[in-house]
């Protein structure tokens, strides 16, 4: 079953990686590429959050487990340059 539609990463892969490496959200993402595709994780993020966290952590934390990075929408290098010039 695919979790991350952009990168076609399956539930089985993500679950197995989590079990094997006991990794946090970021490591899970880097190992499997889940959430790293074109949409920026907007679709599968809640699923990855759920897999990567233990229940207790959820209650305590005031920080989103998987950091958001700009740009939050894909953009060409050309446009990015244009952006800086105003």
């Amino acid at each position: 079953m695919i979790l991350c539609r952009c990168e076609e990463v399956t539930y089985e892969t993500v679950r197995a990686t989590k079990e094997k490496y006991q990794c946090d959200a970021r490591e899970l993402k880097l190992r499997t590429r889940a959430g790293m595709g074109y949409c920026g994780g907007r679709v599968c993020r809640p699923l990855l959050d759920k897999i990567s966290q233990n229940k207790n952590e959820r209650l305590e934390s005031q920080v989103i487990p998987l950091k958001y990075q700009p740009p939050v929408r894909p953009i060409t290098f050309q446009r990015m340059q244009g952006d800086h010039h105003g």
Partner: peptide
């Protein structure tokens, strides 16, 4: 639905789950 808060996250705003 879930709250779309990515831009708030970029500002360093703390969150509650």
């Amino acid at each position: 639905l879930y709250p779309l808060a990515e831009l708030a996250a970029l500002t360093g705003c703390p969150f509650l789950d």
